[in-house]
Simulated assay, not measured.
Amino acid sequence: MEEAARAGRTLLGKRLLVTGGSRGIGRGIVLAAARAGADVVTCYRTPGEAVASLEQELARTPGKHQVVRADAADPAEVNRLVAECEASLDGLDAVVNNAGSFLPRPYAELEPEEWDATLRGNLTAAHLVTRRTLPLLGAGSSIVNIGSTVAFLGMAGGVHYTAVKSALVGMTRSLARELGPQGIRVNTVSPGRIATEALDEQPAEAAERERRMFSSFTALGRLGTVDDIARTVLFLVSDHAAYITGQNIHVDGCV
């Protein structure tokens, strides 16, 4: 029984930082990594039930886990977050840049402050966290940026979001080349439409209509799950992906 349990703990001994880990895809990555044996630090911006329940789940999961309130787009708060990682984990083996959000807006109505907020929250945040964590990463470590398939498909009402996610792919490719000589790998995971709690929070009829519509776009005939993304991220930060870097991996069911 013990041998079987250990066999499933593919990240045993790994130390991860996952930004934006209290909800959705980020939460799925945090919990999957912890259950796979990693020690995990994550952050959130807004307190609430999601944070409290995540702390409870992590408390029941073996390992050193910490949930920190910090805005990944704020340099001072990123410094504090990474200092927490250094103090509690004494280094990092992987960074997952997941934090990010946007509000849909027709391009003709897109105000400069909305453009700037989307840039800061999705791209600048990844830059700040990556730059600050570099001294904690060594040979064999990994950075995973969470992108989106909209960067390649386009999205009406999401020009600002599409632009920053496209930039993230370029950032990944260049960082992979620059950090490769240090043995640090950098990849992007680009989810398609994923069923998260945000979908469940919609009125039942609207949620079902959205599920049917987006499922019909995929070759597999279903929405993606948080676990679909988490498993891909865990593979990329594991030793099984030791020769994979500079890639953008679409996890979208073939849209």
Rank of each mutant, 00 (worst) to 15 (best):
L110E: 13
V67N: 12
T232M: 11
G158S: 13
V150N: 15
L103N: 14
P203Q: 01
D39Y: 06
L153Q: 09
S53Q: 02
A230Y: 00
E3M: 06
Y161K: 06
E86N: 05
A83K: 07
C43S: 14
A156C: 04
T19F: 02
G192M: 11
S166D: 08
A4D: 14
R60S: 13
S216Y: 04
L119Q: 00
G158H: 07
L92F: 02
R69W: 14
R173L: 12
E49I: 05
R185K: 06
R211G: 07
S166R: 05
A206P: 01
A163H: 08
I143D: 05
A5Q: 13
V169S: 08
C43R: 07
Y161I: 06
T61M: 02
L110D: 09
E208V: 07
H160L: 07
F217M: 15
A36F: 10
E49F: 06
A167R: 05
Q182T: 05
A94W: 00
E84V: 02
E86K: 03
I194F: 12
T61R: 09
Q202T: 09
G63L: 12
A204I: 15
R211T: 00
L92K: 04
N145D: 07
D93K: 02
T218C: 05
G170C: 09
T46G: 15
A36Y: 03
L119R: 11
A32R: 11
L31Y: 01
V96N: 03
G154K: 06
W115S: 09
A195D: 13
L175S: 03
A83V: 01
T149C: 13
D116G: 03
L223T: 02
V164L: 11
L12Y: 14
L81H: 00
A204Y: 15
M213A: 12
T225H: 07
N97F: 04
V164F: 10
D200Y: 08
V67S: 02
G170H: 03
T149P: 15
M213C: 09
